[in-house]
Design a protein around this nucleic acid. Structure first.
Length: 201
DNA sequence: AACGGGATGTTCT
DNA sequence: GAACATCCCGTTT
C-alpha cells in the first residue's frame, strides 16, 4: 500500500464561501467580470470560471431581447437562477440570470479551468486533455453534466455550488464570440493569461 | 492556422 | 424555411 495515495484532484484549490442568490441582484455588467475566478460545481464536478459573456435585455444579441418565450421565461424572473438552452440543436449552454426581476439579463458561462472531478469530466467528454474539457459553452455543459433539467434551478442550492473567488484576478475583456448582432460590444470577460479559454483575448 | 461541412432542436419570419 | 450565444473533423494554406 502506498503510504500517501494521491487524491483524485490533488491540485484542487481552497474554495471561497458559497455565493448567495443576492450576488446576482446587480447589473449584469458587474456580475459578469465578478464571476471570473469563482468556482462552479455541479454535483461536486467543475472548476474555476475563466470566461463569461454578458447579455443584457436591451442588447439585440440577447435571447430576451424580443420578450419572453417558453424557453427564456426564467430570464424574466428573479436573479440567481440557471437558464439553459440548446445550441445548434446539439449542445447545451448555461447562463446565470442577473439583475432585478423583469430585467431579463444573464451571463453565459463559456469556459472554466477543471479542478474538481476531472475524471468524471474526462469520461463525459471522452477526452483526456484537460485544456479542452471545458473550453467552450457546449463543452463545459457536457463536462459538468448540465442539461435542460438544470434550467430554472436556483444557483445557491444543490446540485449547483458556486464558491466566491479568493483573490482579485486580472480581467481581460473583448467582443463576444459566435454572434451576428451587436458584434462590437466588449462584453466578453476572461481570466487574463489563462490557458483554459475558448479563444485567447 | 484557417476554412468548410455536417449534426440538428427551438425560435422566428 | 432560415437562423442560431457550437463543436468536431477533414482539407487546404
Amino acid at each position: 500500500m502506498s503510504q500517501n495515495p494521491k487524491p483524485a484532484d490533488a491540485a484542487a484549490p481552497r474554495l471561497g464561501k458559497l455565493l448567495k442568490r443576492s450576488f446576482f441582484n446587480r447589473s449584469v455588467h458587474e456580475v459578469a467580470p465578478d464571476l471570473i475566478g469563482a468556482t462552479l460545481l455541479v454535483d461536486g464536478v467543475g472548476g474555476m470560471i475563466t470566461e463569461v459573456e454578458a447579455y443584457h435585455h436591451l442588447d439585440p444579441a440577447a435571447h430576451s431581447f424580443r420578450g419572453p418565450t417558453p424557453r427564456n421565461r426564467i430570464m424574466f424572473g428573479p436573479p440567481g437562477f440557471a437558464y439553459v438552452y440548446r445550441s445548434y440543436g446539439i449542445h447545451w449552454c448555461a447562463n446565470f440570470v442577473c439583475e432585478a426581476e423583469g430585467s431579463a439579463s444573464a451571463v453565459l458561462i463559456r469556459a472554466l479551468q477543471p479542478t474538481h472531478g476531472v475524471a468524471a469530466m474526462r469520461r463525459r467528454r471522452g477526452l483526456q486533455e484537460e485544456r479542452a474539457l471545458c473550453s467552450g459553452p457546449g463543452k463545459l455543459c457536457e463536462a459538468l453534466g448540465i442539461t435542460i433539467k438544470h434550467s430554472e434551478l436556483p444557483l445557491d442550492q444543490p446540485p449547483f455550488a458556486l464558491h466566491a473567488r479568493l483573490g482579485k484576478p486580472e480581467i481581460a475583456a473583448g467582443v463576444r464570440i459566435g454572434i451576428t448582432k451587436a458584434v462590437d460590444l466588449p462584453w466578453r470577460y476572461g481570466l487574463k493569461g489563462s490557458r483554459f479559454l475558448s479563444k485567447p483575448f
